[in-house]
């Protein structure tokens, strides 16, 4: 199975797992971040993890990512019912990740991902308190965007991928922001340099997929 087929399989599994006839009627279809799937699969392909296990790991990680992303949407909902279901959909996806890994008896990965969820939410709260020009924001963003991938990299002893995830996904997020301060521009350059330095360690498919971020 090539990486495209693997990505498709993970995406289909997620869509199947989160499908809910009532919730789907009221909340927007969730966006599944294919860059994360692709990055995680490339990382796992670089290790000795079996394909079926790799697919399970990425599936579980993406359920959490969806849960967290869904909860980010709560305060944007104007309609009460939409807001309520956005809260509960996120809770449900978190529960599904735990249920899935519990069935696999993978307590160690449950713990690693729980640590990531903890770190991400602390940094999200921290980020809310910082002024737009505070440079600590960049660290918050780095953790928010990469903690799950970093924990997964630790789980499969591919630590160097965690650092790449930190800069790569920071870069992706910062580039999405419309207004860019001087500090943001400087930090973007810093991330690009770090990514360039770290790219040599990694698979061609990662370079190919993310090279546009360096342009």
């Amino acid at each position: 199975m090539d990486i495209r087929q693997q990505m498709e399989q993970v995406r289909t599994r997620i869509q199947h797992a989160i499908a809910h006839s009532y919730v789907d009627r009221y909340i927007q279809p969730r966006t599944i971040d294919e860059d994360r799937i692709s990055f995680a699969l490339s990382m796992l392909r670089s290790t000795r993890v079996e394909t079926s296990i790799a697919l399970d790991y990425v599936f579980a990680m993406m359920l959490i990512q969806l849960a967290l992303d869904t909860h980010d949407e709560v305060d944007k909902q104007q309609m009460m019912q939409k807001k309520q279901l956005t809260v509960l959909a996120g809770d449900l996806y978190s529960g599904l990740y735990y249920e899935f890994l519990a069935k696999r008896h993978d307590v160690s990965l449950i713990r690693r991902f729980a640590e990531a969820i903890k770190e991400i939410n602390i940094q999200k709260i921290r980020l809310q308190q910082l002024s737009p020009d505070d440079i600590e924001r960049f660290h918050c963003i780095g953790v928010i965007e990469s903690a799950l991938l970093r924990k997964l990299s630790e789980h499969v002893h591919a630590h160097e991928w965690g650092e790449l995830a930190y800069y790569l996904f920071s870069l992706k997020r910062i580039q999405r922001e419309e207004a860019k301060s001087k500090a943001m521009v400087d930090y973007t350059d810093h991330c690009k340099r770090k990514v360039q330095d770290l790219f040599y360690l990694h698979h061609e498919e990662v370079k190919e997929r993310f090279s546009h971020l360096l342009a």
Binding site: L68, H71, V74, S94, I110, A114, E115, N121, I122
Partner: peptide
């Protein structure tokens, strides 16, 4: 938004304990 993050934080702490 803050409440959502605190709830998720507590959930993560619960799983860490359970682990």
């Amino acid at each position: 938004r803050f409440a959502m993050y605190v709830g998720d934080y507590l959930f993560a702490r619960a799983l860490e304990q359970m682990c």
